[in-house]
Design a protein around this nucleic acid. Structure first.
Lengths: 341, 341
DNA sequence: GTCACTCGTTGAAGCGCTTCGACAACCGCT
DNA sequence: AGCGGTTGTCGAAGCGCTTCAACGAGTGAC
């Protein structure tokens, strides 16, 4: 029972604008793109017509003719163990950066897999792709190199294979945490990390942080071990109960920050008097906790903006560094104190 | 310093496929679209060629010729007070439903405003739009009706003005909660609601629930009042401390579910022995809480799927109901008990 | 054996844009 | 006055696809 498709109201085309402004279509095009010099008068007239008629260039036609769609794909990890608010923060920042460069963003999920990326790139729907949360041996990574469109990874796969990567330097971040706590006199540290699935999946940032903490601990004469934690209260409570005589915690898991603090409270351990807590998380999360946590911030905005810029630069044919690791910074709030043991 | 743009490797076109299969381009097109009968042999040959060459129709060309882009826009609320995991759940479900119908999803944020929607629709980038979390008097609503593309709202604006809306029936949901608690003998109920900003903004679902709770309370001879709660622990604690002699709580705010339970624990009030807690939230949130909460579920998947289906149906020229409200269902878990006062 | 269909296939037109090459018109030089 | 060099504008080609009208080859009815 298909009725007549509503007779789609005739859209304004570049020809309409040209006629209205008394110039040719190509002139309108050049006014819009700025790729040729146009006299001030003509330009003004054309712009007025564009506004008067409410002209929006047809995206498909433009993409067909220019071989650029002005759309980038964003592959989001909507999988277990990811902290959605943080993912969204990245997504929002990517979107903002893309729009600032007059690009739109197409959403893709990981479950489309490599075939999905091939489809999207192959159909010229997008000019390039940004992928978040790459796994150590992600089936999509080899595919990316075969695509004829550039791509940028947020995160570091084991085999970057010439792909462009951006991320926080989690190794430095982990080390920074240990050094900070060691300097405060702590000698027994526990890292409360991502859920086990995240490590099993081989998600780079989790492992890199964990390993870096171990190495830095050794170097600083500190005992440290890592515990994966599920983002539910009982798991956090169990983890906190199991820290033994540790005097400092590094929490690298946005989803358990609140739970851990609650558990500590329940166990009567005051922060920072009885135990220091340091988080690796976005500032928003650290500030929203009670008490506000000292943290190494995850600079979602910068990473995302950088990813977009690198992608567009690459798409424009520029050479860009294959790997950009942002230096971590530690903000001291009220949750860490010197160990008075 | 613009180097030469990498000579984009020649893409496979429909003509290449046609040549490879020994047919005309139009035949390939008809095989792909199924809009005309094609002999089994030819079809098989063409499909083989498509696969052999890795052909993906050029999205822009297709959109230009067919006047359909097979992309829908999803306008997400990335604003304060929204619970991001729930938003993402909707987004993921929209994406899945769209992909199931061979459509892609373009991400838009609210801060692009009405002009952004006009741009996206006007440029024929998308065939239709889905908007989440419409405010009571959202500037975008009047704009939507002027667009030449269909749109679906997830949520109910004050002035739906002929637009298609889908949502959970929050009025029934609120009433259902009250009725359930009243039947258990509770006579003093507090609704812990969304943050104040959400009400200020005039976000429909929050207000509708609150009002419905009031009405149902009156009707059931129950005292009920509502308190907005910020999604941080201190706010939740304060709210819980302020409930007076209430014996049951309705929590309509995913971000405070955990905090409220923590606060109750801290205050030594056991759930459900001392106080009943009922939530309006997705099952995932209710099940992730400690203890698992009885809840009226927010069926993100269904709402999202329905939104996509309605949108595509409308785009295909079918008539669809202007307003679909899903009936709420209450799942009894362990967090509500009879009032033994 | 012819006619009227149906079925499968095709060529060509055209979707709205970008971009290339051409070309007047004008400039300041000799 | 004639020259080469800009500058501003235009016409036309072409991007890769869909779709329409048309047409040849079968098919069944008579």
């Amino acid at each position: 029972m298909t009725e007549d498709v509503a007779p789609r109201t005739r859209v304004v085309t570049i020809t309409d604008v040209a006629r209205h402004a008394g110039v040719s279509a190509s002139t309108v095009s050049y006014v819009l793109s700025g790729k040729r010099s146009i006299s001030a008068g003509t330009r003004a007239r054309v712009q007025a017509s564009v506004r008067a008629l409410g002209f929006h260039p047809h995206a498909g036609a433009r993409a067909l003719a220019s071989n650029r769609s002005n759309v980038i794909a964003l592959a989001l990890p909507l999988r277990r163990g990811m902290h959605l608010p943080v993912v969204m923060q990245f997504a929002a920042a990517v979107l903002a950066a893309a729009r600032a460069a007059d690009n739109d963003v197409l959403l893709v999920t990981a479950d489309e897999g490599a075939a999905g990326l091939r489809r999207i790139a192959g159909s010229a729907l997008v000019d390039g792709l940004i992928l978040m949360d790459i796994e150590t041996s992600d089936e999509r990574v080899p595919t990316l190199s075969e695509l004829d469109r550039p791509s940028v990874l947020i995160g570091l796969p084991a085999e970057p294979a010439g792909l462009i990567c951006v991320d926080l330097d989690f190794e430095r971040a982990g080390a920074l945490c240990v050094e900070h706590l060691a300097a405060l006199g702590h000698r027994r540290i526990v890292l409360l990390g991502a859920p086990q699935v995240v490590y099993d999946r081989g998600t780079g940032f989790a492992q890199r942080t964990r390993d870096a903490v171990q190495v830095a601990a050794q170097r600083n004469g500190v005992r440290a071990y890592a515990v994966p934690v599920e983002p539910v209260y009982p798991a956090a409570l169990a983890a906190v109960e199991g820290i033994g005589d540790a005097t400092a915690l590094i929490v690298h898991n946005e989803g358990v920050v609140d739970h851990v603090l609650t558990a500590l409270r329940a166990l009567g351990r005051r922060v920072p008097q009885d135990i220091s807590v340091l988080a690796i998380c976005p500032d928003e999360v650290a500030l929203g906790a009670t008490p506000p946590l000292s943290n190494v911030r995850i600079p979602a905005e910068e990473v995302a903006r950088l990813a977009v810029e690198l992608l567009l630069a690459r798409g424009a044919g520029h050479d860009v560094p294959a790997r950009t690791l942002l230096p971590p910074t530690l903000t001291d709030r009220t949750s860490t104190a010197a160990y008075a043991g």
